[in-house]
Amino acid sequence: MVSHLTTNAADDQAIELVVLDMAGTTVADGGLVEQAFDAAARHLGVEPGTPDHAEKLAYVRATMGESKISVFRHLFGDEDKAQAANARFEEAYGELVDGGLIAPVPGAREAVEALQAAGITVVLSTGFARVTQDAILAALGWQDLVPLTLCPADAGGRGRPYPDMVLAALLRTGATDAVQKIAVAGDTSYDMLSGRRAGASVVAGVLTGAHDEDQLTAAGATHVLGSVAELPALLGVVRDDRPA
């Protein structure tokens, strides 16, 4: 048996490029962001249980999906402190990844492969630094899963909620000549804002990560899915199992 993939969308409306978030969308990390934040906060003298820690953690939760250095710039103001916090955060997150504490979201790899088999280009993006993104890809064995992976530094440094990484995916892959043929999927409000600002016609929120349906919808989600595993069907990619 061979799985044959086709798309049932009209050619002039079919999605040609999909930009997928990683942590919370294609990668299950079980709240490692908060654990890594604790390490970064302690490094700068912010102790758990204090009002300052609670306030900063609430901001981290609200801005899931944003470039992490941008988050720390907001939290600590001073650039040196922000850089120190970000470095400790990335180090701590990398240690947790190396400890085997991440896994693919069920059906995520299969969804990516289904989309690519149907001729759709898939790009993985993240708010983490490149070193952390590479550690996640290596831990999952995903180094060769897609033709391009992007972190904020690859697209000018701003990250989400700016549209930069989505537009960089378009420019660097040449997958389509129109932003209307881009789909974006992610688990946070910032993913939704980034996709809408880029002009993507499909901006799908998934419920496997940080934000709930109301938050995703309020940020502009065109669709809300249980998980990224449902994305191929949404885009008209159907699996037709027939004898080879």
Rank of each mutant, 00 (worst) to 15 (best):
T6Q: 12
T7C: 13
A9E: 14
D11T: 10
D11Q: 12
E16R: 15
L20W: 08
G24C: 08
A28C: 05
A28D: 15
Q35S: 11
F37K: 03
D38I: 12
A41C: 03
R42N: 11
H43P: 07
G45V: 06
G45I: 05
V46A: 02
P51G: 09
D52G: 09
H53T: 07
A54C: 00
E55I: 01
A58E: 14
Y59F: 14
V60M: 14
R61S: 06
M64D: 01
E66F: 09
I69E: 00
I69K: 00
S70H: 09
F72I: 03
R73F: 01
L75Q: 07
D78L: 10
E79N: 10
E79H: 11
Q83V: 12
E91P: 01
A92R: 07
Y93K: 07
G94S: 09
L96W: 10
V97P: 03
D98W: 05
L101M: 12
L101K: 14
P104R: 05
P106F: 05
G107P: 05
A108H: 08
E110M: 02
A114G: 11
T121A: 11
S125M: 15
S125Q: 14
F128V: 01
A129E: 14
R130K: 13
A138M: 06
L148P: 11
T149L: 05
T149A: 13
A153G: 10
A155R: 04
R158V: 10
R158D: 10
G159A: 08
R160S: 13
Y162R: 03
D164M: 06
L171F: 06
G174S: 06
A175T: 06
V179G: 00
V184E: 01
T188N: 11
T188G: 05
S189E: 14
S189K: 13
Y190L: 13
L193V: 13
L193N: 00
S194D: 02
G195E: 07
S201D: 13
V202C: 04
V203C: 10
G205D: 09
D212W: 12
A221E: 04
T222Y: 01
V224I: 08
G226M: 03
A229H: 07
A229P: 05
L231E: 01
P232Q: 04
G236M: 09
D240K: 13
D241W: 14
R242D: 12
